[in-house]
Design a protein around this nucleic acid. Structure first.
Lengths: 191, 191
DNA sequence: TGCGAAGTGGGGTGGTACTCCGTTTCGATG
DNA sequence: CATCGAAACGGAGTACCACCCCACTTCGCA
């Protein structure tokens, strides 16, 4: 969180252009769209792209930052809800649907999806962990959710579901269905 | 399932070499190991690799066929078990752990993980669907598992979990934990 | 043993990520 | 408003990849 000194105007402009182009390209071709093509569409040299975003992951973070922020805001609102269990599960559903329908988002959140990168520094993931953690502890406090569950686990599960359903015919529907299944449990409730 | 006429001896030999090399390379570098490098290690030209395996997916299928077959055999044995609910969940756990610890397997099963390919023709997935389907219907018949669940959903969930935990520090542990969570459910059982 | 078909692999094409470095542009300063 | 150093740029260069073409080699049947 070191405060960064102001960048030059042209740098800022190019940064924004790249993010905009990336948003388009990723929506069309998924999380591993061509960086070269993104730079081309943004009207900048490939070196400029790589200077602003040293890794693909950092570009993805920039592209999805706003949407993730919106999800976090939604979580903050939901803290008011009297039914903490539903608040948590509805929020998780929202995250799952967002991830399943926004191409590349799930891959971007899942530590890059791939192996490698010692410093993933996933800011987006951290934001969701913070926002969701609060909902979870409320739900656990109210006895609506098993106390031995961590928000990391839940988000991993949600992301896994998004990733798996992203390429299907009805991503939102499949994601919702799978998540509900996981939340309710597979086994019949033993009375 | 058209019966294929016998290939020449050298073709068979190269085929086997490629699969062996791919097994090594995928274990080291994951599901998107370099096909070029695999061909090199196998001592064949890249054209030969592409002739035997027209897509990356088909190579992955060949590499993992035996392991998947083993999982299916295990499912067949477990049909004898008196506790059909446990049989199903234990088998799903086995699949999850296998997928999480064998690099590339989850990606290979998840329709390629990526979009595209009209004819994925995922033989491995079909095998698991058959084998698991029987365990599921037994479990549903015994009332141990919710009747509104399909084996496709369960396997998708398992694969998603494998994929998400594959790159962590303790893939088998994380996969097992997440799967159990999904099977038991997140919410506290409402008495 | 000969010969045709099956199989091979080197080299070509076009794409990618990422870097080097000479050139351009900004913007603070006098 | 002119100057100038630092910041930023971008095209050309490197190294890798998937995939294809086609002249050549090898197999195995008769």
């Amino acid at each position: 969180m070191a405060l960064e000194r102001p960048r030059r105007a042209d740098a800022r402009r190019n940064y924004d252009r790249i993010v905009a182009a990336a948003e388009n390209e990723i929506a069309q071709h998924g999380a591993d769209a061509s960086l070269e093509e993104i730079a081309r569409r943004a009207g900048v040299g490939s070196a400029t792209l790589h200077r602003h975003f040293p890794s693909r992951q950092s570009l993805l973070e920039a592209v999805f930052h706003d949407r993730v922020e919106a999800l976090c805001a939604q979580a903050r609102e939901m803290r008011q809800s009297p039914d903490t269990g539903s608040a948590l599960t509805h929020w998780l559903e929202a995250v799952a649907v967002y991830g399943a329908t926004t191409r590349g988002l799930a891959r971007s959140l899942l530590g890059g999806g791939r192996e490698s990168e010692p410093p993933p520094d996933s800011t987006c993931e951290a934001m969701l962990v913070d926002a969701g953690g609060e909902l979870l502890s409320l739900a656990v406090g109210a006895g609506a959710v098993r106390p031995d569950v961590s928000i990391i686990e839940l988000l991993t599960l949600v992301n896994a579901i998004s990733l798996a359903t992203e390429s299907g015919s009805d991503p939102a529907g499949e994601a919702t269905r799978l998540l509900r299944l996981a939340i309710e449990g597979v086994r019949t409730t033993t009375h």
